[in-house]
Amino acid sequence: MSRRRERIDRGIKVRADDIYALTSWREMLYLAAPRVAPVLTLLVVGLAAGPYWQRVIMTTSMFALLAISWDVLAASGMVSLGQALFFGVGAYTSGMLNHYFGWSPLLTIPLAAVIGGAISTLLLLPVLRLRGLYFAMVTLIMPLIIERVIEATGIFGGTEGISGLASLPHRLVELLVAMVMVWVALFGLRRLMDSDYGLVLKGINDNDRSVMSAGINIYRRKAEALFIASSIAAFAGAFMTHAYMFVGMPVFAMDYSILPIASTVVGGVGTLAGPLLGAFILVPLSELLRGLGGLRIVIYATLLVVFIVGLPEGIFPYLKRKYTQFERWVEVEK
């Protein structure tokens, strides 16, 4: 090998790492495009699509929320193998509130996000004292057992579930709320993770003892991160419950655990935008491959393994590099 690939930051990034001097419309566009273009594209596609694909976009958005939530947890040192737990708790909470008290979805969904987040956090609180592996094990177990408990005891509607729940006012409202929520979660959490608060969370993931010796209560911080992440996932659960006007055992299904992980790994772990991108690739893909039916999870799981072993970087960091850097081959002297 006498050549190597050289990467050079594009002009605008070279000048400063955090403060950009914007001197032209072109540069503004360069910065804004990657943020604005996806928002607009999704909006236009969503409004133009037929009812079926609108529903797919809505579902995808909810999976994207689950994936973003997974990524936030992972960045804070908590690997969840059971996003279905948070999703399911949120789904059942809003379903119960609507079924028994007759409250409107506009009230039950936000309430379920908060209550669901709180319940999930309380359930997992003891695990936070231990290494990450325990978190993975317990989150994997919980949705499976809860599902079985509901089946066995018949609580919360048992195997039948509860149907006839109130739906959201209008299909378009549903779609727009889903989209807004995705972008709020993405940009909000990105800001949070880039702040010093997020820095401490990443520090806990990296080296928790040093964080402790800095006088920071890591259990509290982890619990806070868990609450934030599980609330987002619980929101997704509550939202889907009202979108399908039904809540039942399937909300604890493996789909809701594996897809967020697969989306994140395919999109790029730790980037938050990656999980979103991953979800918007994988979910519509599975809709296109509907004929395969049960093979869906097999495909996700296989993709997951292929990416984590072969392409651990993920798609988003790759795209980002192409966008922000020039690449060229240069001769290398021996």
Binding site: G132, I258, Y300, V305
Partner: peptide
């Protein structure tokens, strides 16, 4: 062929074995 490449990356190990297990089980179901 899978885990050896991820040695030391506990998170990746966990995810990889989880993925393999799920793929196998759901393949049986399919």
């Amino acid at each position: 062929y899978l885990l050896l490449r991820l040695r030391g990356l506990v998170v990746s190990e966990v995810i990889a074995t989880f993925g393999v297990g799920l793929a196998l089980l759901e393949l049986f179901r399919y």
